[in-house]
Each structure stands twice: as structure tokens, then as C-alpha cells.
Design a binder for these strands. Structure first.
Length: 478
DNA sequence: CTATGGCACGGATT
DNA sequence: AATCCGTGCCATAG
């Protein structure tokens, strides 16, 4: 229902790429594919969805016939063989996996499983006047991947022929919704909103608001002397403010629960909040096999409508040509979809086997892996891998949603090692010293690179780290 | 003078 | 062919 609403006012045009080969479906992530299928269904009468059914045993929704891949698994569990299959589980928080513990966890990140706009809209819908709804929907669908609104309010106001004042009011309502500060026009504004709310229940360092509002540049550049001067407080106090902001506020609301603060340079591709694949542990058993579900955007199996196919011989001669092309198109589309799913399944089988430890134990266990190597191993073209990976996300057993590209991150190991060293450092270490320490641990990196990694991880330079608790700072220099 | 960040180059990856 | 990433050089902040 709400999704409908959003779609009806979404101003972002759906890219009208022509369906030529299977590749054009492979690049799409789950949200995009979902839209694609909907529009294809609407345009082509030969398309048909047969309802999936549920496994009588575990209630898992199934696409392909009778046998649930989990229930029908061999009794002797082999943890090195993941179970990979296409699943229709769109609303998987309603179908918690095997254990009850997991169910609780699911509560926490339910909102990650639907797209951000929908999640926010649900919260605020009761506060909205009817006439505000299109505006709210417009704002929410225009958010960038950080959860910020880059379009000027004026434009939106002009678009709907309302006063900027009114748009602003809607924005305020949105900002107070759960990823606090979502829909703000800038990181700065997001912080101010969060601060405002936080100050109602917590003590905050004095002058924090002024620091953000007026000393923004100083704050983001860690120019504490200047900041302290501006606010008329001591340098220590200025640092305290920075620390407070860094560890309690989040300039990019949408990144709240992401596995990684950085966003790969993927253009906005719809919702990042719905994973394309879900990786979980069977029965939550750490030694059990991994269950990998490649999510299908529809809860049924797409097919060519058999009635249409058989009815074609009785077709009105005028329309025969049209019917034929519909039929052909539908057949192609179904085939493409199958190939897409199959490609991702094969890819995931391999990835999950290689990165098993990473999935269970975290960043430092990531194996070096390139798309090229994977392409050789499963004997597909490199570009197939690229397309399958790009713009897609996976939900890990830990509850984090990561981009699939993280499985191919070349420097993640070093960066986590770096983090560890800095966490445990007594005195702040300079980049040069860090180079040596990493060298001892078998990582060869240049001094300059350390600096890059630090800023990626949001770690301050050595002088900025003095005696401050090494908490992850979120903002980066602009 | 030392540590760090910016710019840009070249090789690797996609 | 386009993009990403590590690195060297140099300016500048501390």
C-alpha cells in the first residue's frame, strides 16, 4: 500500500533499458528488478506469475516445486558445502529462520529489510496531512545513499506549487523519524537535528550546538585551536565536543547500521536496505553449513502464461503479430530471469566457500579475491561477475548488510589490522611507525597508503589521537 | 624539522 | 576503454 503510494509519485524515471540479452537483468539489484518485473507484467499480457507454495515442513516459501533445499538436505551435514538457492522470501522478518534468538535479532534490523523511504514513511504517515503526503514521498524518494536530501527545498516547493515553508515543515517531520536526521539537506543539518533530540534526554557538552552550526569547518578539519577560539572555550573542551559529536552523532543517517561507513562509488540504485542475498547459519549452528538465499523480488514463479500460449492459434488475425511478439518477449524475459538467478547462485556458492571465515568471523578473515579469478574458477566471463556483483548487497549472519563488492576488497585485511594496532596503541603512533608495525605482521604498505586507510576508517592523525579514547570518528574532510 | 594531506601518475582491475 | 588503487612528490600544518 505504502509502496504503491511511493511509486505513484516517484519522480525518478525507471531506466528504460531495452531487454536484449540476459545481461541487462544481471546488473539489476533486487529493487530494480522488482520494478522491472512489475512494468514488464503490466506491458505484456503473456506474462504470468504462478504462486509459490510453502514447504510443509519449515514454512519456507518456495518457488520451484516440492522440495525445500534445506529440509531435503542430506543428514550428514557438511559445513563446507553451502546450501544455495533462490528464495521468495521478501518479507523474511515474518519468517524468522530456525532459531528464536535470530528472531529477536531480526527485530533490530527489520527496517533494513525494506527500503528506507518506506520505512520512514510508515513511521510518519500518521503525522502527515493528506496534502503533505506527495511532498513527503517526493523527499523520501529523492534521498541519496547517505539518507540526505540533495535537492533544494525551493525546487520541491515549486514543483508542487506550495510554499517553501510547507516543504520545510514536512522535512522537519521526516527528520524526526528513525534514522534520526534523515532527509536533512546537509550533514550539518542532520547533526543539529540529532543533537536537538538527544539534548532532551542527555547531557551534552556546552557549546556543542554552536560548534556545529558556526564552527563546522573547524570541526570537520579537527582545527581545535580555531574552534576553541571561536567558541571561547579551552582546547580540551573543544576536543571534548569533537569527541562527543564523533561518537554520538551521525552525519549520514542512512549509514547507521551499515557494516562499513564508506559507500562504494556506486550511483544511487534504489534501496540499499533490501539485501539481494541473505546468508545465514543453518539452525544458527556455527559449525553447520551456510544457507544462502538469493532473493527473488516476487513471491511466485514467473512464467509464460500457458493460456496465452495455447490461445494463440485462435487469435484474431489482426492481433496475431502483436501476440507473437508478446509471447516471444515473455519467453525471453523468463529465460533471462532464470539465467540471472542461476548466475548469482553459482557466484554465491563459490564466494561463500572461499569467504566462509570472513562471513562468520569478520573483516580480518577476508581472503584476497579478484573477480577475474572467480570468473576463471566458475568459467564465466569476467563481465558476468562484475555485473552480478555491482550494486548488490548481502545480509550476513551477523546482521550486517554489506555490498557484495566487499568480498573483493583488496585492502580490508590491512585496514582492520591497522585499526587493531591503533586501538591497542599506548602512545599515538605516526604513520611511519605504523608502516613498520604492519611490515612485521607481513603487510607491505607505503606510508602514504597508511594515511589513506586512516582517513577511510575515519581515524584521526597521530596528534589528534592523543589520549582520546580511540572511538571511530564518522566525518571526513569534505 | 616531521608528520600529514593533496594531486597526479601508472599499473592493475573491471 | 574506464575505473580503481597504491604510491611518490611536494606543499603545508604542527
Amino acid at each position: 500500500m505504502l509502496i504503491r503510494q511511493l511509486q505513484s509519485v516517484d519522480i525518478r524515471p525507471i531506466p528504460t533499458a531495452h531487454l536484449t540479452t540476459t545481461m541487462s537483468l544481471l546488473v539489476l539489484n533486487i529493487s530494480e528488478l522488482s520494478e522491472k518485473i512489475i512494468s514488464e507484467m503490466a506491458a505484456n499480457p503473456a506474462m504470468d506469475i504462478v504462486e509459490g507454495h510453502f514447504c510443509p515442513n519449515c514454512q519456507r516459501p518456495l518457488l520451484d516445486s516440492t522440495h525445500c533445499p534445506i529440509c531435503s538436505r542430506p543428514k550428514d551435514l557438511d559445513s563446507s558445502n553451502p546450501i544455495v538457492f533462490v528464495s521468495a522470501r521478501n518479507d523474511f522478518h515474518n519468517h524468522p529462520l530456525e532459531s528464536e534468538d535470530l528472531e529477536n535479532d531480526f527485530e533490530d534490523y527489520t527496517y533494513e529489510t525494506e527500503d528506507l523511504p518506506t520505512y520512514v514513511l510508515k513511521q510518519i504517515s500518521s503525522e502527515l496531512e493528506i496534502e503533505d503526503r506527495p511532498i513527503a514521498a517526493h523527499i523520501l524518494t529523492s534521498l541519496d545513499e547517505d539518507g540526505l536530501l540533495r535537492n533544494p527545498l525551493i525546487e520541491i516547493a515549486a514543483f508542487y506549487h506550495v510554499s517553501p515553508r510547507q516543504v520545510e515543515r514536512v522535512q522537519k517531520i521526516i527528520q524526526s523519524a528513525d534514522p534520526l536526521g534523515v532527509g536533512s539537506s546537509s550533514p550539518k543539518q542532520a547533526l543539529l537535528v540529532q543533537l536537538e533530540i538527544l539534548s532532551q534526554t542527555n547531557d551534552i557538552p556546552p557549546h556543542t550546538k554552536e560548534a556545529i552550526a558556526e564552527g563546522w569547518d573547524f570541526l570537520t578539519h579537527q582545527q581545535y585551536p580555531e574552534l576553541s577560539h571561536l567558541l571561547g572555550v579551552t582546547i580540551t573542551q573543544a576536543k571534548e565536543i569533537a569527541r562527543f559529536v564523533g561518537s554520538n552523532l551521525n552525519p549520514y543517517p542512512a549509514r547507521a547500521n551499515w557494516g562499513d561507513a564508506r559507500q562504494p562509488t556506486t550511483p544511487y540504485r534504489g534501496a540499499f536496505y533490501r539485501p539481494d542475498v541473505i546468508i545465514s547459519l543453518l539452525n544458527n549452528d556455527e559449525n553447520g553449513p551456510l544457507v544462502v538465499e538469493v532473493i527473488s523480488p516476487i513471491d511466485g514463479k514467473l512464467q509464460v502464461n500457458p493460456l496465452f500460449r495455447s490461445g494463440i492459434k485462435d487469435a484474431d488475425p489482426d492481433k496475431l503479430e502483436q501476440w507473437h511478439s508478446d509471447l516471444e518477449r515473455a519467453t525471453l524475459f523468463v529465460k533471462c530471469l532464470q539465467q540471472r538467478n542461476q548466475a548469482i547462485v553459482r557466484l554465491m556458492e563459490r564466494i561463500v566457500t572461499i569467504q566462509h571465515d570472513f562471513i562468520l568471523n569478520g573483516d580480518s578473515y577476508l581472503q584476497p579475491l579478484t573477480r577475474a579469478r572467480l570468473a576463471r574458477e566458475i568459467e564465466v566471463h569476467e563481465s558476468t561477475i562484475s555485473r552480478s556483483v555491482s550494486g548488490k548487497t548481502a545480509l550476513l549472519p551477523s546482521g550486517k548488510i554489506i555490498p557484495l563488492s566487499k568480498f573483493f576488497d583488496r585492502s580490508l585485511q590491512v585496514r582492520t589490522e591497522l585499526q587493531k594496532i591503533i586501538q591497542e596503541e599506548g602512545q599515538p603512533l605516526t604513520d611511519m611507525e605504523l608502516v613498520d608495525l604492519l611490515m612485521q605482521r607481513g603487510y607491505k604498505v607505503a606510508r602514504r597508503t597508511i594515511a589513506k586507510y586512516r582517513s577511510m576508517e575515519g581515524i584521526m592523525p597521530s596528534h589528534g589521537r592523543k589520549k582520546l579514547k580511540p572511538k571511530k570518528l564518522i566525518y571526513q574532510s569534505p
